[in-house]
């Protein structure tokens, strides 16, 4: 018995999260021109954008590890023979 195949594009829930993260990495939700407070010379909004970008990278790593499995098992089997 082989495990069910997992293809990221077929998983709607992943894309909802990805959509939310995409919305967050665009700076539309801050008042234009504002930059206070600054942390170590970095405007607050840039911190939030970087934070959201880190979350996106982390989420991508998660998908890559757990939600993409189309050929691995077969390839492993072949490799073992």
């Amino acid at each position: 018995m082989s495990k069910p195949k997992k293809e990221p594009i077929k998983n709607g829930k992943l894309w909802i999260v990805m959509g939310i993260l995409f919305v967050l990495i665009n700076p539309w939700y801050f008042p234009a021109g504002s930059y206070q407070p600054l942390f170590w010379g970095i405007p607050y909004w840039a911190f939030i954008i970087i934070g959201a970008s880190l979350l996106l990278s982390a989420f991508l790593s998660y998908i890559l590890k757990y939600h993409w499995d189309l050929a691995e098992e077969e390839e492993e089997k072949k490799g073992a023979e």
């Binding site: 293809e7 990221p8 594009i9 990805m18 995409f22 990495i25 930059y35 405007p43 909004w45 840039a46 954008i49 970087i50 959201a52 970008s53 996106l56 990278s57 991508l60 998908i63 890559l64 993409w68 189309l70």
Partner: peptide, 24 residues
């Protein structure tokens, strides 16, 4: 200035797009 910070997330977007087609 900081508007060019976009260059960080746009490189992440490349991986997002890969996930749409690379597996298949």
């Amino acid at each position: 200035g900081f508007e060019y910070l976009v260059s960080v997330p746009y490189f992440i977007m490349i991986i997002v797009v890969y996930l749409m087609f690379a597996p298949r």
